[in-house]
Measured scan of single mutants.
Amino acid sequence: DLSALRVEEVQNVINAMQKILECPICLELIKEPVSTKCDHIFCKFCMLKLLNQKKGPSQCPLCKNDITKRSLQESTRFSQLVEELLKIICAFQLDTGLEYANSYNFAKKENNSPEHLKDEVSIIQSMGYRNRAKRLLQSEPENPSLQETSLSVQLSNLGTVRTLRTKQRIQPQRTSVYIELGSDSSEDTVNKATYCSVGDQELLQITPQGTRDEISLDSAKKAACEFSETDVTNTEHHQPSNNDLNTTEKRAAERHPEKYQGSSVSNLHVEPCGTNTHASSLQHENSSLLLTKDRMNVEKAEF
């Protein structure tokens, strides 16, 4: 173990290094160091905050020279020094078990990766560091076993998940096959086929009936047209017969005018059967003409 005197000496050296690497504005270890034209180094955030307070150039807090945003430059070497100082402080805390008085939040800088452990060898070769390295080497064999167990647990979990997924996939297939086998029997399929065939026959029977009705309507229309044509021909046949009657009536009127007047009046009210309204109107006109002729003949006879 380190003596108290040596611990104090190391602590004083760390404090001196820390004062050199402090920012003059925030009085902390410089984060993202930036250098000016006057070779003074500050935190990048502190300098941008200072420049944004005034429009135009501002003055350096140490030498009062003008500073602009374009004049600022990043210093990589200074950032490396800060990183190495942080590593020294971490090693000091691990070796002594004491917390550094002016320690900052170094938890963000710590890294437990194997590459980081290899890099620590180049920091300080001390008894405390050696003991700590031995402890780490002793704890390393235990870690692979834990990793193997965790991997086995994960693989077993994956296997159970896969088996569950396969079961879920197989179950719908089985149910679907069961439904297909038990849903419709052979008799049901035959009945469905016969039902479809009967429906098709009914459709075939319905369509000819409609065509037959249309044919019957067409035949009825044709018969009505033929009947009207026969009526017209009958009226045409009746007209010459009426003319013959008129000639006979004229002759009778010349011989017996008194008797014919009474008979002509009675004939006005008689309509021949089986004739249309057109034929009756023609008869009325003929009878009126005959009456006028008879009157003329009677007057001539009187004179």
Rank of each mutant, 00 (worst) to 15 (best):
P24T: 00
S58P: 02
Q239R: 13
N15K: 04
M127R: 02
T248G: 11
L94H: 09
E8I: 12
S3W: 11
E83M: 05
S58N: 01
C38P: 00
M296V: 01
T160P: 08
D200I: 04
D218G: 10
A252T: 06
P144Q: 14
S197N: 09
E202T: 06
Q59S: 06
Q11K: 11
L62W: 02
N15E: 15
N234K: 06
V153R: 09
I89V: 05
N234C: 13
E214F: 01
H238I: 14
F42T: 01
L136K: 09
V190G: 12
E226K: 04
E8M: 10
E22Q: 02
Q168P: 09
R135L: 14
M17Y: 00
Q18S: 08
Q239K: 12
H284Q: 03
N12R: 03
S58V: 04
N112I: 12
A224L: 10
Q18C: 15
K293R: 10
A4M: 01
Y100S: 07
L85C: 11
Q18T: 12
N246A: 11
Q201I: 05
S228V: 09
Q154Y: 08
H256C: 02
K118S: 02
E226V: 13
P114G: 09
R174V: 07
R165A: 06
K222S: 08
L136N: 04
C23L: 00
G159R: 04
T277N: 03
E28I: 00
C26Q: 00
L291F: 10
P144A: 11
A133I: 09
S186L: 03
E84T: 04
I88V: 06
T277V: 07
D39G: 15
K192N: 12
L282T: 03
K64I: 00
S287C: 06
F92T: 00
I89W: 11
L203E: 14
D39V: 03
R255K: 11
K44G: 01
A133G: 08
F42Y: 15
N12V: 06
K87L: 07
N65I: 08
Q93S: 04
Y104R: 06
K49Q: 11
Q53I: 12
L137A: 14
N52P: 01
Q168R: 07
Q93I: 00
I124H: 04
V7M: 03
A107C: 08
A4K: 00
I206Y: 06
P33D: 01
V232D: 14
E83K: 03
E229S: 14
E142D: 11
T248I: 03
P272I: 05
L51T: 02
